[in-house]
């Protein structure tokens, strides 16, 4: 019961904040800074992390907060401040006609997805998504703990992709440095 209430709260916050991300810094009289969007994004990420907890993905929830809401968003913030954005002479949003059309397009996308998930013949009516099926995961969690349950496949079945992501991060670091470094004429 408590979980359901929490889910609705987190879900509402996540959706609202996501809307804020999209519209941030463009509301009348609020200036043009992208920082607003960024802060809304942090809020969204935190809400999603909450939902992760409700879905018994404790480890991912922690990482979501630390890596995403923490590290990556701070990186964005640094860049925004570094570039001193928010004083654009061009309008950030497209015109209302275009916006409406794009809203319809993306709305259709979300509608189709939601319909596939929840509509007739969709997820809600599938045995697959029945609450009872969560028992196996609950048992695994009880046995191995929140970290152990994800660490085990990560270091056995997925050890090669895991190492490869390490290389990917290294390459990304080098690449980012090479790209962002000021060229000395």
């Amino acid at each position: 019961m408590v979980e359901t209430v929490l889910f609705w709260i987190f879900g509402a916050v996540a959706l609202g904040s996501a809307f804020g991300v999209v519209m941030g810094g463009t509301l009348p009289g609020k200036g043009g800074s992208p920082v607003a969007s960024l802060l809304f994004m942090v809020s969204t990420l935190a809400s999603v992390a909450g939902i992760y907890v409700l879905l018994e993905a404790h480890f991912l929830a922690a990482i979501q907060v630390m890596v995403y809401a923490g590290a990556i968003m701070v990186l964005f913030l640094f860049v925004i401040m570094l570039l001193n954005l928010g004083h654009e002479y061009q309008r950030d949003m497209k015109g209302w006609m275009a916006s409406l059309m794009l809203f319809l397009v993306s709305g259709a996308l979300g509608g189709i997805l939601a319909y596939r998930f929840a509509g007739p013949g969709g997820g809600a009516e599938l045995d697959f998504l029945a609450e009872a099926n969560t028992a196996a995961m609950d048992a695994a969690l009880a046995e191995q703990g929140a970290v152990g349950v994800i660490a085990e496949p990560l270091y056995t079945t997925y050890v090669v992709p895991f190492e490869l992501t390490g290389i990917l991060l290294l390459v990304a670091i080098v690449g980012a440095l090479a790209l962002a470094k000021r060229r000395v004429a």
Partner: peptide
């Protein structure tokens, strides 16, 4: 935009 429309079309036909 074109990418999105493409995804939409795929979802539509597959769904």
């Amino acid at each position: 935009f074109i990418l999105t429309v493409g995804v939409l079309l795929i979802l539509w036909t597959v769904g």
